[in-house]
Amino acid sequence: MASTRAVPRAVLLSLAAALAAQVSWHALRPAPAPFASALPPAPPLAVLRLASLGEPEALARLSMLALAAHDGQAGAALSLRALDYGRVVAWLERILALDPRARAPLAAASEVYAAVPDPERVRTMLDFVERHFAADPARRWPWMAQAALIARHRLHDLPLARRYARELRLRAPDAPAWARQMEAFVLEEMDEHEAARALIGALLGSGAVTDPNELRFLEGRLEGMPDRMKGEARRTEPAAQSPPGL
Rank of each mutant, 00 (worst) to 15 (best):
V89R: 15
D174Q: 13
R101M: 08
S63V: 00
G205H: 12
D71K: 12
E120L: 10
L170W: 04
L155W: 03
L187W: 07
P34T: 03
A27N: 10
L149C: 03
L80F: 09
K230Q: 14
P244V: 06
S14C: 06
A60E: 10
A90Q: 08
D174K: 09
A69Q: 14
P173L: 11
G72P: 07
A107N: 11
L126E: 02
A165H: 05
H153K: 06
A161N: 07
G205S: 13
L96Y: 14
A134Y: 04
L92P: 04
D127H: 11
L199Q: 06
P100N: 05
D136E: 13
G201K: 11
R140T: 05
M229S: 07
Q241L: 11
Y164L: 13
P176R: 14
A240Q: 10
L83W: 08
L15F: 01
H156A: 13
P137I: 03
M182S: 03
D174E: 11
P56W: 00
R169H: 09
A51V: 02
A38R: 10
R152I: 00
A175N: 07
L53R: 14
F185E: 15
A145G: 00
R87C: 02
E214R: 01
D191F: 06
P176D: 13
R163G: 13
L78N: 05
V112R: 14
L215P: 03
D211Y: 02
R131A: 12
P40H: 04
R169E: 08
T236V: 09
D136C: 00
